[in-house]
Simulated scan of single mutants.
Amino acid sequence: MHSDRLFQLESMLRSGAINQRKAALDELAQTPAHIAIPLLQRLASDEDFLCRRFAVMGLGNHPTPASLQILKDLLEKEADNNVLSEIANSLFEFGDESVPVLQKLFERNHHWLTRQTIISILMEAHQDDVLLAVIREALQDETQTVKETAILALGTLLKGKLHQEALNILSELSQAQDWRDRWRTATALNLSSSPQAKEILAKLQQDENHYVVAAALEASLPHE
């Protein structure tokens, strides 16, 4: 790529409108990694958080050892959780080797956006042991939305080797004091057809909260 065009793309990513930044990122995704990565690395240190966010998105388009190391280094100095959550998304492009990094980020970062992003990512990682460990910690989170995301993630485990562990946790949550925990539990149980799940749902159908009852009734409907 000609140097003038690279300069134009860098300018678009630094200060362009959102559609211009997206267009620049799409073009860089088709650019050879050895050309795109140094540019994206520079932008990842920009003062503008939006510029940094687009830069780490771009690094995810070039999953090489160099870009992986850059993303790991950024985790140590980035303070904005919008950017951190985007780093987490980009890390997932590197496959299994990113999972331990994401787990450590979850353990040390307690911001709701970063935590919810990581839970959602790990639901697609097919590493049930790690997901369950993260869920257990998230269930202790003071932010309700993080806790609810973790409860819904238990539904993912109902189809795997840890289905019984997930069911046991959901059974406890079905008796939680907060109706939102019981509500999300009913939704998560939608993914299980086991007798224990049906028994829990039957009890939730008698719940004092109408949102919980509605979710339990919906989860009990036959699925194609």
Rank of each mutant, 00 (worst) to 15 (best):
Glu78His: 11
Leu217Met: 13
Glu137Ile: 12
Asp80Gly: 00
Ala55Asn: 04
Asp26Ser: 15
Met57Phe: 10
Leu105Met: 14
Ala36Glu: 10
Ala186Leu: 05
Ser193Val: 07
Asn89Ser: 11
Leu105Ile: 06
Phe94His: 00
Gln30Asn: 11
Ile37Met: 14
Thr156Lys: 14
Gln30Lys: 13
Lys161Val: 10
Lys147Ile: 00
Ala133His: 13
Lys161Ile: 09
Asn109Ser: 10
His163Leu: 05
Thr31Phe: 09
Ala23Thr: 10
Ala17Asn: 06
Pro63Lys: 02
Ala150His: 06
Trp112Ile: 01
Val101Ser: 04
Ile70Met: 10
Lys104Phe: 08
Glu142Asp: 08
Met12Asn: 12
Ile119His: 04
Gly155Asp: 02
Glu78Gly: 10
Asp207Arg: 13
Arg184Asp: 06
Thr187Leu: 13
Leu122Gly: 10
Phe92Ala: 10
Leu158Glu: 03
Pro195Leu: 01
Ser220Glu: 03
Ala44Pro: 05
Val130Gly: 03
Trp179Phe: 11
Ile118Cys: 07
Thr117Ile: 01
Arg136Val: 12
Ala186Thr: 02
Glu10Met: 11
Ala219Tyr: 00
Gly60His: 00
Val56Gln: 10
Ala214Glu: 14
Leu113Asn: 04
Phe94Ser: 01
Arg184Gly: 06
Asp26Glu: 15
Ala138His: 04
Gln144Leu: 14
Pro195Tyr: 00
Ala150Ser: 09
Leu221Arg: 13
Gly160Glu: 07
Ile87Tyr: 05
Asn81Arg: 04
Ala176Trp: 03
Ser220Gly: 07
Gln177Leu: 04
Gln127Glu: 14
Glu10Thr: 11
Ser3Val: 07
His126Gln: 15
Arg42Asn: 14
Lys147Trp: 02
Thr156Val: 15
Phe7Ala: 14
Asp128Gly: 09
Ala133Cys: 13
Leu40Ala: 11
Gln144Met: 10
Asp4Ile: 05
Pro65Leu: 05
Ala186Glu: 03
Leu122Val: 10
Leu191Ile: 01
Tyr211Glu: 09
Lys77Ala: 11
Trp183Pro: 01
Ala66Tyr: 10
Leu189Gly: 07
Lys203Pro: 05
Asp96Ser: 09
Lys72Trp: 04
Thr64Cys: 09
